[in-house]
Design a binder for these strands. Structure first.
Lengths: 287, 287
DNA sequence: GTCGATTACGTATTACGTAACAATT
DNA sequence: AATTGTTACGTAATACGTAATCGAC
């Protein structure tokens, strides 16, 4: 077998064409590379270069060798990547959620009930993708907004969120106790992109042209301050104290504006996350 | 990148289960392996074993690592094999022949006109396989017994061979000047397996049950001496002095018993073998 | 003179072996 | 007591750097 460092050096020489260029890229000296290339030829029992005076170039065998050396190096690098990735995955729990709020809300319970595990969270609009993610082990946990009719999935009711619209006090709609999506039609409404499945809900009822979608939260907050435009809100957000003075928040009456979240994992992995589920159940009852 | 020796050692440890067993197979000491495995874990930044007292076993990551290490080692070994094979192929000319005699006859001319090249010869019954062999570069040269109607093949008439039957002087057929395959029907005839396309010819005209096919030449010669059974012969063989006293050889009159050999190469490689072809042509005319 | 490769020599790294030890069986 | 793995230490192999040399442009 050929040692990896020889292949790395050979690959660089083959790619760059001269020992000097390769020596600079590899941060070694030319003599060192000169010796290494000789050693490689010696160990293979094959000539790889045509040398004439102060020139060195691959011969036919050398060109073939360069291809196979590359493959061997790729296999080595892939091995490293896969091993490290797999090891990390063993120490990481990935959570996919259909909405941003449950992620924040779950954090303390996750950190408390998955000791020694790193957490990775991801916002993923559709329940379907979340379920697929659970099945192919991309996610270990998922927050869904619809109860999954699937025996392979273990699922527990988690929390509810109701969509609100926040308006200036002097807005025509501000006098109402509640509104429907129909009432909001034609209104220009601020929102952020990172709202998961809520984006689908709003797009279902309102025109994309009326939604002023901001790429990030900072941009949204700045526009809320700088304008008197309506923006979407929720009972959970408001509970957390995100209240803007001089604005009034009205519930949206459509059933679509009321979401029930479900915490899910693979039924086969239910045991692993038992303490998490019971902690969440206890908290849910408390609320 | 991980050095190959670490992967080899890891593969052996993973396969054999203990450091001791691996150390014996690899002819190194246990302490050396112990250090190597630590170094491997250190370089990957990952734990590969569960160690408890005087036991060591792969953990989940280690099992995955063993698979990928195997792949990386395989890629390394395949690289070595392919490079050496390719290099050898550059220095070797392979000749495929439909019959054994032309191989022997060609040898001197081959060695004289292909300086610095190693020779590899192979007996291959059918012209079709020989032609395929030329096209996929398994053979550089081929001796055919039929003129190939193929523009991609360069071909030159080479020599002729006539099939004879050698009989005891007191054999009923011995008084004839010549025989046909039909005359030979029912006779038990000795022959060797290594006669190339002549085997097809004899099987076409005679029953396999009547042919006493010997695996090698020594066995045939021994039986010729020990018995008075007829055996196949040829003008070329007899010209070389393979004459057994007390036997008589008769030509076989069927047209199938008369072969014309053609020396062929890829038309695209004709230049490479020009001197060989002209040497052969000169010799053919001389004969 | 500059660029690129090789050779010769000394050095620093490091992989290995030996010996001693620890912990199971 | 025998088996298996680890630690400590010295040694030997070897990969590398420096300096000098050679040839070509």
């Amino acid at each position: 077998m050929i040692e990896t460092y020889l292949l790395e050096q050979f690959e660089a020489v083959a790619r760059l064409g001269t020992l000097l260029a390769a020596s600079e890229e590899l941060h070694v000296t030319q003599p060192s590379l000169s010796r290494s290339m000789k050693k490689l030829e010696d160990e293979l029992g094959v000539s790889l270069f045509v040398r004439e005076n102060s020139k060195i170039a691959l011969n036919e065998t050398g060109r073939l060798a360069a291809e196979y050396a590359k493959r061997a190096l790729d296999a080595n690098q892939e091995m490293i990547d896969r091993i490290i990735m797999f090891d990390r995955s063993l120490k990481t729990v990935s959570l996919g959620s259909c909405a941003p709020f449950p992620i924040n809300e779950l954090m303390p319970a996750l950190q408390e009930n998955l000791p020694g595990k790193a957490l990775s969270t991801e916002l993923q609009g559709s329940d379907e993708r979340l379920l697929n993610g659970l099945k192919n082990h991309m996610y270990q946990l998922a927050v869904l907004h619809e109860y999954p009719e699937d025996k392979a999935i273990y699922c527990q009711r988690y929390l509810e969120e109701k969509l609100y619209i926040t308006l200036p006090e002097d807005h025509p709609l501000a006098s109402k106790k509640a509104v429907s999506f129909d009432d909001l039609k034609g209104l220009r409404i601020l929102m952020t992109a990172g709202v998961g499945f809520w984006m689908d809900i709003t797009l279902k009822h309102l025109s994309e042209l009326d939604l002023l979608i901001q790429g990030n939260m900072d941009a949204l907050l700045e526009l809320i301050d700088a304008s008197s435009l309506p923006f979407f809100n929720s009972d959970q957000m408001m509970k957390n104290g995100d209240i803007v003075p001089g604005r009034i928040s009205l519930p949206i009456t459509d059933s679509d504006a009321h979401a029930t979240f479900w915490l899910a994992c693979l039924a086969s992995e239910q045991q692993k996350y038992r303490s998490l589920f019971s902690a969440v159940r206890a908290a849910t009852i408390r609320i």
